[in-house]
Design a protein around this nucleic acid. Structure first.
Lengths: 127, 127
DNA sequence: AGACGATACATGCATGTGCATCTAATGCAA
DNA sequence: TTGCATTAGATGCACATGCATGTATCGTCT
């Protein structure tokens, strides 16, 4: 690999880092300020809202790119805040289902326009 | 904005999230396993190595997309591990200079091929 | 010179994170 | 059926992170 090719690879990585930092930072601020949730909470709400209201914990791990343990605690925090509920998974009693509460669905609907607006601002003309 | 345009915006964001998670996750693993450092440590080493060996703390904050306090602690950890040194900044006594030690420079040179290899694997054919 | 807001960095504190591990349930094999 | 490796999720622990704030210095204005 030539030096110039390597440099462009590094530049691409730095661009990816910068874009991720910009978008997730902006989302984090706006979602926190306007709705009191973070990016991971929003992604979790969205996944649950578009998943027939019933979702395994492992599905949420995939959706958020977090680890299994972090997902477990995220669910706990959201449960504490009344946004989701855990329920026993009858087909596999090791697992759990996570479901949106009414408050969780309401918060998702409220936060969604903010989320989309930030994406429009941050990703404008770069698709 | 049409629904389809909104969906593509969301898809673009999710693609960015996935790419970031894949590349930074792979870098984190490989750099940790093979050299005992994380992505932020590597970016800091690289910045210092390509910056005439002298850098203000604030410059490192920019390079890593971290906050100021996190950067301060990152420098502390790297100083504890013998990779960098803090020195008084004579032109502005509020600030500090951060410099690579010989060990820090050696570690950077060792880790750089790993870093580039992971970028090649992860970013292949997507530039 | 003296006062005051701005800037650079450090730090106390609460919280988020991953790793390793634990428990319980599953599936498969003997 | 019993035994054992595997899987789902919870949790103890150490550590990283950000926010708010503290300290010292700088620059400017009077």
């Amino acid at each position: 690999m030539t030096d110039v090719a390597e440099q462009s690879l590094v530049a691409e990585w730095h661009a990816l880092l910068a874009r991720h930092a910009a978008v997730s930072g902006a989302l984090e601020c706006r979602l926190q300020d306007e709705h009191g949730i973070g990016v991971n909470e929003f992604e979790t709400l969205e996944r649950l809202a578009t998943c027939d209201r019933k979702c395994r914990a492992a599905d949420l791990t995939d959706a958020t790119h977090l680890t299994q343990s972090t997902t477990s605690r995220l669910i706990s925090r959201m449960e504490r805040d009344g946004l989701v509920e855990r329920s026993m998974c009858d087909i596999d009693r090791r697992g759990i289902f996570v479901m949106l509460t009414a408050a969780g669905r309401r918060l998702y609907e409220e936060a969604k326009p903010t989320h989309r607006a930030v994406l429009r601002e941050q990703l404008a003309g770069e698709g």
